[in-house]
Design a protein around this nucleic acid. Structure first.
Length: 627
RNA sequence: GCCGAAGUAGCUCAGUGGUAGAGCAACGGUUUCGUAAACCGUGGGUCGCGGGUUCAAUCCCCGCCUUCGGCUCCA
């Protein structure tokens, strides 16, 4: 066999790569596959200008500038060229060069190309310029294809055994829309065909969990772009049930934690958002204003109203509605507020990115000395929720400011920024929560913590957010009278542990693959009489369950019991209660749980008590009916 | 918003320059049934929208809308 035979346990060895970035074996393989693809493209279109071609989570891509529009119909040709290159088994040769040598090659169009060309390798020139002085500059060559590249690579093109081009998309050079648009050609590569096929099978499986698909299948929500508009979901009754359960959870949790509930309108005058400072910063993310002529007053105050994109300004006005004393603090105002954001059309994505959203919002106004305790309590609430839902893969992202953004991206209060960030960092460290700090990502009014989660199908989302605001209360002139009889400005914590209904439920659908635990399941119980002689018994059980607020229904149809069970299972009904002559006789029910099969017969009263208990505890499905 | 792709019945998808097809779902009937599909029948489509080419367009061409895959931002 060839050297460096690609095996999962014995991956291809790297070409010499002491100065190269660290890559896993799979990443290295994929990075080499990207070079093989670039070689093929350069062969087909010698004028191609390549930018960057890294490995990514699912495979690799290479950005290329090319007048020919690459479409999936070209993939076959490109793959055929790639196969030839793999078959040729060209070695990947690493060359350390001086900056001058690299520049000379780039000027002659020789980089990321098979030969010298009339036009310089312009993106490679730009990348070259960004390599710091003194760093090692390396080239990699396979066959005639010579590329500026930090590496590392596998030994030979023959190591790239299983690959496939998957998509083409556009991407701005370096992700900046002021830069030229490049064609990004995606592919994936694996050590062998079997693993690659497993990958595509897994993608097929993941598709079945997709919240858009399950949402339609299960009747949870619908999109009606022609009538309601893009990004404006309609919640169907079964989705509404989930939404109600989440609100109930939030309301109970917040009530216990000392929050008070408020309710605010969906719109506000322009003054609200110019005062908050959102308007100049945030205008393009808001729906255009409504002009109401009568509202324009003599003093020339604008008659414009905006749909709110956030709830905080309204809550600030509630704080301002009466004089506040230090005795009133912390004041925790909670609301399931509906906000509207004009997301760009290309950004809309099922329930995960919408234009109208119901936010599990609250604003905590507190004195600086109360901050640590409040902030800790908020974090504890996050963790409590994650435990209920069984989220294990999450990360807190602590976003802080950067000096260069002061007065532009961030309110110009460098001292306050530092104080607050130190305070948040201290709390995070003391609480032992796992977090990463990301500079220059803060909100304009203060540092924030985003909770990122990964769905079962591998999508990453910011699910919840927790922000500190030391600026906007001041802009609204919010004060409380302190012990020393002076007015002080409160700190404000914005928090939304359950994010928005839309994204949270979208995430839950994928997390549970539609198989919700009993307390969340839209169809909690379905009672199936074996024959029509048990219909009255079934109705009685349903009435008893519904009186106890359980979502229960009964079904009798022309289908045999087996068929009705099949349909209930397909509909992901959580608990099926079968009542036949035997059960009727014994005042019992035969229990079946979705995905778990029959669970035996139980006295009716016992079964109902168990169901109520599981719902009340919001029990996850493990051990639901373990007894 | 930009680049690319897609849009046929409620859902999943076939298909053709000449009257539009299947499975599931729905509806009607027969069946009274024991834990993942009993049987028979019926209805259902402006083939995303608008324009063009053509004797004829769901199919070919152009524009638009929407959705999807990305870029960027974010709950």
């Amino acid at each position: 066999m060839e050297d460096g035979r690609a095996m999962p346990s014995a991956p291809p060895p790297a070409a010499s790569d002491s100065s190269a970035p660290r890559m896993t074996d799979l990443e290295r393989l994929r990075h080499s596959a990207a070079h093989v693809m670039a070689t093929a493209i350069a062969k087909l279109w010698p004028e191609a200008q390549f930018a960057a071609g890294p490995p990514v989570a699912e495979g690799f891509y290479y950005d290329v500038e090319l007048t020919h529009r690459v479409s999936p119909t070209d993939f076959e040709r490109i793959e055929a060229e790639m196969k030839a290159i793999v078959k040729a088994n060209q070695p990947f040769e690493r060359k350390v060069v001086s900056r001058a040598e690299a520049l000379a090659l780039a000027e002659k169009g020789r980089l990321a190309a098979l030969a010298e060309r009339a036009t310089p390798s312009r993106y490679k020139l730009d990348i070259l310029a960004s390599i710091p002085e003194g760093a090692t500059i390396t080239l990699y060559q396979n066959g005639d294809f010579l590329d500026l590249c930090a590496g590392p690579h596998v030994m030979r093109t023959g190591n790239v055994k299983a690959f496939k081009l998957t998509a083409v998309a556009s991407a701005y050079y370096k992700g900046d829309e002021k830069n030229p648009q490049l064609q990004r050609i995606y592919g994936t590569a694996f050590p062998n065909k079997t693993e690659m096929e497993a990958h595509f099978t897994m993608l097929e499986e993941a598709k079945k969990r997709d919240h858009r698909r399950l949402g339609a299948e299960m009747g949870l929500f619908t999109m009606d772009p022609d009538y309601t508009g893009p990004g404006l979901p309609l919640w169907l009754p079964k989705g509404g049930a989930i939404l109600e359960e989440l609100e109930k959870l939030a309301k109970e949790t917040e009530f216990a934690a000392g929050y008070v509930r408020v309710k605010t309108p969906h719109i506000a005058r322009e003054k609200m958002f110019t005062t908050s400072g959102h308007l100049p910063y945030y205008a393009e993310s808001m729906f255009p204003p409504m002009e109401i002529r009568e509202a324009e007053d003599a003093a020339g105050v604008s008659g414009r109203y905006y749909l709110k994109a956030m709830n905080c300004p309204h809550h600030h006005r509630i704080f301002a509605a009466e004089p506040r004393s230090y005795r009133d603090l912390p004041l925790r105002l909670a609301e399931y507020g509906c906000c509207y954001r004009y997301e760009q059309s290309g950004e809309l994505f099922g329930l995960m990115r919408v234009r109208a959203m119901n936010m599990n919002d609250a604003h905590i106004y507190c004195a600086p000395e109360q901050f640590a305790a409040e902030f800790n309590a908020v974090n504890a609430m996050y963790l409590k929720y994650f435990k209920i839902f069984g989220f294990t893969k999450y990360r807190m992202r602590f976003s802080t400011s950067a000096p260069e953004g002061m007065g532009k991206k961030y309110v110009d209060e460098p001292e306050l920024w530092k104080q607050t960030e130190d305070m948040v960092r201290a709390v995070l460290q003391a609480s032992g929560i796992d977090y990463v700090e990301v500079p220059n990502e803060a909100a304009f009014y203060g540092p924030k913590i985003d909770v990122q989660v990964w769905s079962a199908i591998g999508r990453e989302f910011t699910l919840a957010t927790n922000q500190v605001d030391f600026a906007v209360p001041k802009r609204f002139g919010l004060v409380y009278r302190d012990r020393d009889n002076t007015d002080k400005i409160p700190l404000c914590i914005h928090r939304a542990p359950l994010g928005t209904h839309e994204r949270f439920i979208g995430f839950l659908i994928e997390h549970f693959a539609g198989n919700f635990p009993l307390w969340l399941a839209p169809d909690q119980v379905r009672v199936l009489p074996v024959t029509d002689a048990q219909i009255d018994s079934a109705k009685g059980i349903v009435a008893e369950l519904r009186a106890a607020q359980v979502r229960a229904e009964w079904e009798f149809s022309n289908d045999k019991l087996q068929g009705r069970i099949q349909r209930a299972e397909a509909a992901r009904v959580h608990t099926i209660l079968v009542v036949g002559a035997r059960e009727q006789e014994a005042d019992a029910v035969a229990l079946r749980i979705h995905g778990k099969g029959p669970q035996g017969v139980k006295p009716r009263a016992q079964a109902i008590a168990d169901l109520l208990q599981a719902i009340r505890e919001r029990r996850s499905d493990e051990g639901q009916f373990s007894a």
